[in-house]
Write a protein that binds this DNA or RNA. Structure first.
Length: 830
RNA sequence: GCCGGGAUGGCGGAAUCGGCAGACGCGAUGGUCUCAAAAACCAUUGUCCGAAAGGGCGUGCGGGUUCAAGUCCCGCUCCCGGCACCA
C-alpha cells in the first residue's frame, strides 16, 4: 500500500452524497445573461434534446447527457459564459394512454415522472443551469406555443384545408408525413397508417423548402453528414420544367418533368387515378371503366401501392393532348403509378427514357421513341443516361426546335428556352416536402387557439385570453373515439365569438407535440417571462445554439421543424439568424448484446441499477470512453467495473502528492511536465473535435505517467507530480465530476473544480529535445534513431547508414536514393 | 434503384497532413501479496517461423499511383442509415 493515508479506494456513494449538497449551494452553472449581453464574456449555448417524461431516465439519456456535459464543462473552463439548460417535452400520448388505463389525469403521470427524472438528473451531475427548467405542458409554456401558432397564422404560415391525410387507427389521430415510416406504419406505435379525407391545420413548411434545402450546404461541415443527407432526401429538390399540353375540349394540363429534353419522345400522358384531374378529364364513354379501376385502386392498401415491382395498370380516359413541340396528338391515360400529390399529379409518358413509362407503354401497346442515343452495347430498355439527343423531330413530323446531337444538359436548356418562347412551359424546381400537418385529435397537447364562428368564420383567440387552458378531463373521457376528446367538454367548447359576441365553438384539436419542441430553445432564454415568448435581445446574444446533441430518430422530424420555426420567426422580425443549430452531433444508441434494448427481448439494462453498482462517474466514463459519440454502444462489450478501477487509480494520485498546493512546477521533473502539457494541448484539440473517447484515453495515459513518476521516478514530493495530478482532476471533471471534486479537495483546493481555471499550456514544454527517427529500407522499418529535432538531412543519412541492421538489410546493394523527412524519417532505396 | 456512411487483434476502439498499424481500455494468460479470495501490483498478449537475434505476413476483396498506402485513385463484396413507381 503505497498510498499515504492508507486508502486504496473511496466510497462511490459516500462521495456522491457528499458533493451534491455542496454543488447545490455553490450553483456554479448558472448562466449570466448580463455577461453575454454586455459582451463581457463570449457565449456558448450547449443544448441536448430534452427528454419526454416516460418513467425514469434510461441508458440513452445517460449517454447523451454525458457526452453533452463534456463540451459544456470544457467551454466553461475555457472562459465562455455557457448556457446549458434543461427541461421536459411533457405533452404527448404515453401520458394520455396511461391516464386512460389508470383513470387519472395525464398530468399526474407526467409530473410524477418529471420529478423522478429530475432527481436522477441531479444525481447524474451534469452542468445544467436549473433555474431555466421548463415543461412544455405548463400553461405558462403552452400559452406561448399558442401565441406562436397565431403569429405563424398571421404570417400566412398556418392554414386549414381539406385533404387526404394520414390516419393512425391505433392512436386515433392524424399524423404528419414525417411521422409515417417508409413502410407505411406509425412512427410512434407501429400501426399501419391509413388515409382519411379531413379538414386539418397545416404549417406551410413548403414555403421554406428552397431555403431549408439551400442552408444545408452551410451546415454540411458542422452537422453530422448522415443527418444533412437525410434532410436533403426528405426535402427532395429536383430541377426540371413545367410543360403545358393543350387538351381536346379541356383546359390545358401542366406536367412536371426533370427531362424536358425527352419531350419529343412523349407518346402518351398519364394522370394519377386518384387525382381530381382524372375525374374531370374522363369522357362519358370511358367513365364506367375508369370508375371501376379507380375503386379497385382505392381498396388496395398503401403498403401494396408502395411496391415498385407490380405490373403497370391503367385506363384510357378517352381524351387526347397535343405535344407542344410537334403538334402530335397523344392519348391521356389514368394510372396508379403517378402520385396525385407530387408535382401536378400528371406526367408526360416517355417510354424511351423512363423505365416505368417503358413498362406502361409495353403493357398498353403504346409507341416507343428514343430521344437519347444509348451506348452501342446498350441492352436495357428505357435509357436515361448521358448521350446525344436524337429524333428531334422524328421522321415525318415538324418542329421549330431541333436539338439533335446536343448533350442532355444542352438539350434540356434548349428545350426549356423554346417552351418559354412559345408559352408552353418554363424551367422550375419541384420539392418532395409537404406541408406539416399539425392538428391532433388527442387531449394532452396545446389546444389550437382558434374559435369557429358561424358568422365570422375562423377567429383567433385574442392574445390577452391566452393561454387557452385544457379543460379538466381524465380517465375514460380521454378514450380515443376518432374525434378530439376536447369536443366532449361542452362548457369549454362553447364560447362567444370574440368578434361578434355570438355563440361560437373552440377548435377542439390540439397541436402536434413537435410544435412544442420547435421553439423550446428560445424559451430557455427567458423561461419565466410572462410578457413575451422570448426576449429578442437575449436571442441575439445567446443564439444560435453552438452545439446540439440528440438522437438520429429526429434527423428529419424535430430538426426540420425547428429549422422551419426559426426561419419563420426570423421573417417575423423576432430574431436575425437563419439556422437554430450551428453544429449538430448525433449520439449512437445504447444496445445490449447486439440488439436494441426492449422489454420483449428482456435485455434491458436499468440505468439506476448500473448507477447503484458502479456509481455515476463510472457509468458516465464508460459511455464516453466506449466509442466516438455517433457510434452505437453495446453495453455487453463494456466494462463499467474497469472504468471504476481507473477512477480509483486516478483518485489515488491525489493522495500521493506530497508537495504543498502552489508548489512551483517549474522546479519539477521535466519529462513528466512535458507529458502533462502535451496532454492538455491534445485534450483541447480533441474536445473541440468532439473526440471525447480519445480525451479519456489521453487522460488515462497521463494517469499512468504520473503513477510511474511517483513509484519509480522523481517521487510524490516532486512538484511536477502535483501539476500532473491537478491536470488529471480537471480533465477528469469533464466526465467524472465526483471523483474530480474529491481529488481537487485532497489536493488542497476549494470546491468546485468546475470553477477552477483551465491549465495553461507552457508552449516551451511542447518542444521535444529528442525525437524518434524511423529508418526504413525499401519502405520497411529496420531501425529507429533518437535524434535532435533539428538534425539535418545529411546527419540523419549518415546515422541511418551506420546502423548495422540497416546495412544488413541493404546487403551490399547499391544505394540509389535516400529520402529524408527530417527529423522523423529516413527511407533508403536500393 | 438513387444518395450518404462504414469494414482495423478475441472485444470496444487509436492512428484523417501519405511516413513505426494496433494508442488507451476490456478480456485472457502467467506471476507477486494472501490460509484463501477480492482488490492492488508486475509481466506477456495481431499472426506465422525461430531457443534467441531476427525475419515473413497483416487494416473486407482485386488492381493501380508512390521511395512509402489503413490513409490517395480505379473496380468489386458485404454491413448500416436515408429516400424511393417523386416523373
Amino acid at each position: 500500500m503505497s498510498e499515504r493515508e492508507g486508502q486504496t479506494s473511496y466510497d462511490v456513494h459516500a462521495v456522491e452524497a457528499k458533493w451534491l449538497p455542496v454543488w447545490e449551494r455553490l450553483d456554479p452553472f448558472r448562466a449570466s445573461d448580463d455577461a453575454v449581453v454586455s459582451g463581457e464574456r463570449e457565449k456558448r449555448y450547449a443544448l441536448t434534446m430534452f427528454p419526454y417524461p416516460s418513467g425514469d431516465l434510461h441508458m440513452g439519456h445517460a449517454e447523451v447527457f454525458a457526452l453533452h456535459d463534456v463540451i459544456a464543462r470544457y467551454w466553461r473552463f475555457r472562459g465562455y459564459e455557457v448556457l446549458n439548460p434543461m427541461g421536459w417535452d411533457s405533452f404527448g400520448l404515453p401520458a394520455e394512454n396511461a391516464a386512460i388505463r389508470n383513470d387519472e389525469h395525464p398530468a399526474t403521470y407526467t409530473y410524477a415522472n418529471i420529478d423522478t427524472q429530475f432527481h436522477s438528473m441531479k444525481r447524474y451531475a451534469t452542468s445544467v443551469d436549473w433555474s431555466r427548467r421548463l415543461h412544455t405542458s405548463d400553461p405558462e409554456y403552452y400559452r406561448w406555443t399558442q401565441w406562436l401558432f397565431l403569429k405563424l397564422r398571421e404570417q400566412g404560415m398556418a392554414y386549414r384545408k381539406n385533404s387526404p391525410v394520414n390516419w393512425c387507427p391505433r392512436d386515433q389521430t392524424v399524423l404528419a408525413n414525417e411521422q409515417v415510416l417508409a413502410d407505411g406504419t406509425c412512427e410512434r406505435c407501429g400501426a399501419e397508417v391509413t388515409k382519411r379525407e379531413l379538414t386539418q391545420w397545416f404549417f406551410r413548411t413548403t414555403a421554406y423548402a428552397q431555403e431549408l434545402y439551400d442552408c444545408l450546404d452551410d451546415l454540411q461541415d458542422s452537422w453530422i453528414g448522415k443527418v444533412v443527407n437525410a434532410q436533403r432526401s426528405w426535402i427532395g429538390r429536383s430541377e426540371g420544367a413545367h410543360v403545358t399540353f393543350d387538351v381536346d375540349g379541356h383546359d390545358p394540363i401542366t406536367v412536371f418533368t426533370t427531362r424536358p429534353d425527352t419531350l419529343f419522345g412523349t407518346t402518351f400522358m398519364v394522370v394519377a387515378v386518384d387525382a381530381k384531374l382524372a375525374e374531370e378529364l374522363v369522357t362519358d364513354e370511358q367513365r364506367a371503366e375508369f370508375e371501376t379501376y379507380r375503386d379497385e385502386i382505392r381498396k388496395a392498401s398503401d403498403i401494396d401501392r408502395l411496391a415498385t415491382d407490380r405490373p403497370k395498370t391503367g385506363v384510357f380516359l378517352g381524351v387526347h393532348a397535343t405535344n407542344p413541340l410537334t403538334g402530335e396528338r397523344i392519348p391521356v391515360w389514368a394510372t396508379d403509378y403517378v402520385l396525385a400529390d407530387y408535382g401536378t399529379g400528371a406526367v408526360m409518358g416517355v417510354p424511351g427514357g423512363d423505365q416505368r413509362d417503358w413498362e406502361f407503354a409495353t403493357t398498353m401497346d403504346l409507341p416507343i421513341v428514343r430521344t437519347t442515343e444509348p451506348p452501342a452495347d446498350w441492352d436495357g430498355e428505357a435509357f436515361n443516361g448521358e448521350g446525344p439527343a436524337i429524333n428531334s423531330p422524328a421522321d415525318g413530323v415538324t418542329s421549330a426546335l431541333d436539338i439533335n446531337g446536343l448533350s442532355v444538359a444542352e438539350a434540356k436548356a434548349a428545350t426549356i428556352a423554346h417552351l418559354e418562347s412559345i408559352g408552353h412551359g418554363e424551367g422550375t424546381v419541384n420539392f418532395r416536402l409537404r406541408d406539416w400537418l399539425l392538428s391532433r385529435q388527442r387531449y394532452w397537447g396545446a389546444p389550437i387557439p382558434v374559435i369557429h364562428c358561424p358568422v365570422d368564420g375562423e377567429v383567433p383567440v385574442p392574445e390577452d385570453q391566452l393561454p387557452v387552458e385544457l379543460p379538466e378531463l381524465r380517465g375514460a373521457d380521454l378514450k380515443p373515439k376518432g374525434t378530439s376528446p376536447l369536443g366532449a367538454a361542452e362548457e369549454w367548447v362553447n364560447v362567444t365569438c370574440p368578434t361578434c359576441g355570438g355563440p361560437a365553438k373552440r377548435d377542439t384539436d390540439t397541436m402536434d407535440t413537435f410544435v412544442d419542441s420547435s421553439w423550446y430553445f428560445f424559451r430557455y432564454l427567458s423561461p419565466h417571462d410572462d410578457t413575451q415568448a422570448f426576449d429578442s435581445a437575449l436571442a441575439e446574444a445567446w443564439g444560435p445554439i453552438d452545439l446540439y446533441i440528440g438522437g438520429d430518430e429526429h434527423a428529419v422530424l424535430h430538426l426540420l421543424y425547428a429549422r422551419f420555426f426559426t426561419k419563420v420567426l426570423r421573417d417575423a422580425g423576432l430574431i436575425t439568424w437563419d439556422e437554430p443549430f450551428a453544429a449538430y452531433l448525433s449520439q449512437g444508441k445504447v444496445i445490449n448484446n447486439g440488439r436494441k434494448m426492449s422489454k420483449s427481448l428482456g435485455n434491458g439494462v436499468d440505468l439506476g441499477a448500473q448507477l447503484d453498482e458502479f456509481g455515476v462517474d463510472a457509468v458516465r466514463l464508460t459511455l464516453v470512453f466506449a466509442s466516438p459519440p455517433e457510434d452505437n454502444i453495446d453495453w455487453a462489450d463494456m466494462s463499467p467495473a474497469g472504468s471504476l478501477r481507473f477512477l480509483q487509480r486516478a483518485w489515488r494520485l491525489s493522495g500521493d502528492v506530497e508537495s504543498a498546493p502552489g508548489a512551483d512546477p517549474a522546479a519539477g521533473d521535466a519529462a513528466l511536465r512535458k507529458v502533462t502539457h502535451r496532454t492538455v494541448r491534445e485534450a483541447e484539440q480533441l474536445v473541440e473535435a468532439y473526440r471525447f473517447n480519445v480525451v479519456v484515453a489521453r487522460t488515462m495515459e497521463l494517469v499512468n505517467a504520473t503513477r510511474k513518476a511517483i513509484d519509480s521516478g522523481p517521487g510524490g514530493a516532486d512538484p511536477a507530480v502535483r501539476e500532473a495530478a491537478e491536470v488529471v482532476a480537471r480533465l477528469l471533471s469533464l466526465v467524472a465530476p465526483y471523483t474530480a471534486e474529491e481529488m481537487w479537495e485532497r489536493l488542497g483546493h476549494e470546491p468546485s473544480v468546475a470553477s477552477a481555471s483551465w491549465p495553461e499550456v507552457d508552449e516551451s514544454l511542447l518542444v521535444e529535445d529528442t525525437v524518434t527517427c524511423v529508418v526504413q529500407v525499401q519502405g520497411k522499418v529496420r531501425a529507429t534513431l533518437e535524434v535532435s529535432p533539428d538534425a539535418t538531412d545529411e546527419q540523419l543519412t549518415e546515422l541511418a547508414l551506420a546502423e548495422p541492421n540497416v546495412q544488413r538489410a541493404i546487403d551490399g546493394a547499391e544505394v540509389r536514393r535516400v529520402i529524408v523527412r527530417a527529423p522523423k524519417l529516413v527511407n533508403v532505396v536500393v
